[in-house]
Design a binder for these strands. Structure first.
Lengths: 205, 205
DNA sequence: GAGCACATACATACTGGTTGGTATGTTAGA
DNA sequence: TCTAACATACCAACCAGTATGTATGTGCTC
């Protein structure tokens, strides 16, 4: 019987480190993220960190691959596949996420976009991993749009890939603008513009 | 007669420092921007830098207020005022800038957006200065749209301010996506989506 | 199934390098 | 002659990373 004074659970420890790293990176960015801050938040030490990750870069990569990618798939790609009208689907997800975001979320912005803007010119490894997430996201929207075209819900004269790219970009842009303004209302204003655009994609009856 | 061995020109020295700081910040971000790198690029020393600026933060603020703001006004706000159809104006500027951007520009992204994403959660002074630039930009587009409405060029049922916000956001989003993809073609794909949106704003004949 | 062997899972203490910032020079020009 | 405009030398703080120590669980032996 273990008294659990120092019970060991390496998988959980790893998750705790990843989560704390995500929070620190989300706030300060990767370069300015301090390992000491991350460890202070977890109560762990450098021994634990460097046992689970070879260096800071690997920790950052793991945050992208295991947390940010999963979050993107879970919030956007998988839910969207459940709708047979992708425009309704996108509007629903948009409203759902937009309604749940509080001021703090808006102020910190999208972790994917934050990291992309910071790290893509500096580190190719980050760039590729982030690009992979963007590709999955874009592909999810693109396939949904194509399916919607076959179902006669989406205009046949638009290119699903290009349109998906623009939707994704516009969304990140809206989040970014609202983030700097520190204004949830501005996010909704911006989101209204995006929804207006989405409506133009519906097939004529 | 000055042999110009060490000719002094404080205003020019200040500009040189600002420009070098902009380049370094554009590449690495503000926090990771190294004063040593900036000085090495200029051939100046810390004495010069700290004579013209009290600290690193003030240097960063000056870059926003004097370089980035001017650039935004010069590239977007002032040119747009010359068109009597804002939609044609926006399309023209978009094509003009999009055509001139090379791969390096795309990879580094928009300095305004870069700084906003990095610094707005961390430093209120940065946030306010960047917000001011965004406001000027948004106001420029908004006023042009309103003018276009009165001239019967722009649909009367859209809100100029909200639409201007979305245009600005979508644009920054497109730049951001292309930046991470390191792909000029993706920027044009994305830009095509934005242009498609702009076309929907035209008043019916 | 008791005890030993060993790898895993951490904690602690320390280091070299870089950073922003400062204190103190030195030189140019008015 | 005095001040603005720089240059030089230095410093404390912080950083990622490492070397080493220690405790925990686990498998293997007899």
């Amino acid at each position: 019987m273990s008294t659990a004074a120092h019970a060991r659970n390496p998988d959980q420890t790893r998750q705790i480190l990843l989560q704390a790293a995500l929070e620190e990176i989300h706030l300060r960015g990767f370069q300015a993220a301090s390992l000491s801050n991350i460890l202070a938040k977890t109560g762990l030490t450098k021994g634990a960190l460097y046992h689970h990750f070879p260096d800071k870069l690997a920790l950052g990569y793991a945050v992208v691959e295991e947390l940010i990618q999963e979050d993107t798939l879970g919030k956007w790609v998988r839910p969207l596949a459940d709708f047979n009208n992708p425009i309704d689907g996108l509007l629903h997800i948009l409203n759902d996420i937009g309604g749940r975001l509080d001021t703090q979320d808006v102020c910190l912005g999208c972790p994917l976009n934050n990291l992309a803007q910071e790290m893509s010119p500096i580190d190719e490894g980050f760039r590729q991993r982030l690009d992979h997430v963007y590709r999955l996201w874009r592909l999810g929207i693109s396939q949904a749009l194509a399916k919607g075209q076959h179902a006669g819900k989406v205009r046949a004269d638009i290119n699903p890939e290009a349109t998906a790219t623009f939707i994704m970009a516009a969304l990140e842009g809206c989040m970014g603008i609202a983030k700097n303004a520190r204004d949830v209302k501005l996010l909704h204003t911006c989101g209204w513009g995006l929804m207006q655009y989405l409506e133009t994609l519906r097939a004529a009856k």
